[in-house]
Amino acid sequence: MDMKRDWTLPGLTVGFALIAVVGTLVLPDWLMALTVNSFSRALAVLGLMVLWRCGLVSFGHALYYGLGAYVVALLGKDWGISEVLITLPAAALLSGLVGFGIGFIMRRYREIFFAMLSLAFSMVMYGILVKTEALGSTDGFSIEQPSFMGWTPEDATEKLHTIFLMLCFICWAVAALVHRYLQSTLGNLTRAIRDNEIRVEYLGISAQHAVHIKYVMSAALAGLGGAMLAISLGQVDPDSMVNWPVSGELVFVTILSGPGSVVAPFIGSVLFELIRTYAFEWVPGAWQLIVGATLLVIIFFLPGGVWSLISRAIGKREDL
């Protein structure tokens, strides 16, 4: 165990406060929008990181990502509810619930089987959305303007700033909670489960049970991330939110970030968005090539993700 003082929580607090203040004052709109997209994705990645710490990789979390997004979109469309204090928790809750149900099957599987089954479930969701004309089929549909505690922003800039600040707060709170969880006995089992499940069971704890909890957590986080993305972009559709390449992208960012710390997903996500934005702008015909090559480089040369660089720089033991 690392006996050094853990600076993660104060770091998170200071970091997000700084981002919120400095971001509001200096970030141009496009960079703020990019940060919002990144942080939304980072929430989902945070959940995947929890799973990855016990050796599980889900290739189907776009299921929950998309579910969260569609929950927000549908609440607005069918019930006229655009209040984020309702839509966001609803998205996370429903994603968590669906994760709870599917978790009963998922928790029995490990390794590649876990990855493939999760992919299968996400493709079922994709099939349903593509087929449902009422949900706009492959087109998806637009989302109502969100309101924040009853207040609706008047223009794009106001909306963006509000979402940005709200997201900074949510990310701070979620990252702190996840960090606390990972430090707890149950959370610490993540590594133990990956190393040796039988030993875990000798401790009198069901490994399946522990995996189930983590799965539900990651589902709720992915739902929350998808919901945030939907609110900021104002549009949902199956190909951008639920199709398998989206799941692949989430896993990619997880690997890019590295499992070392709850801070990593936020850094990794911003990095990913920057790579993608510039690749798309400079070589529109080959941006996938650049993204793919980056992924290979990370896999081969930086297995701990970008966090391993940072932790090395600040002289911390790699927490793999």
Binding site: A115, V251, F252, I299
Partner: peptide, 14 residues
């Protein structure tokens, strides 16, 4: 194994 899947995913993109 899942890292290998990711590597093939990267290859697919390329």
């Amino acid at each position: 194994e899942v890292i290998i899947v990711l590597a093939t995913f990267a290859t697919f993109l390329i």
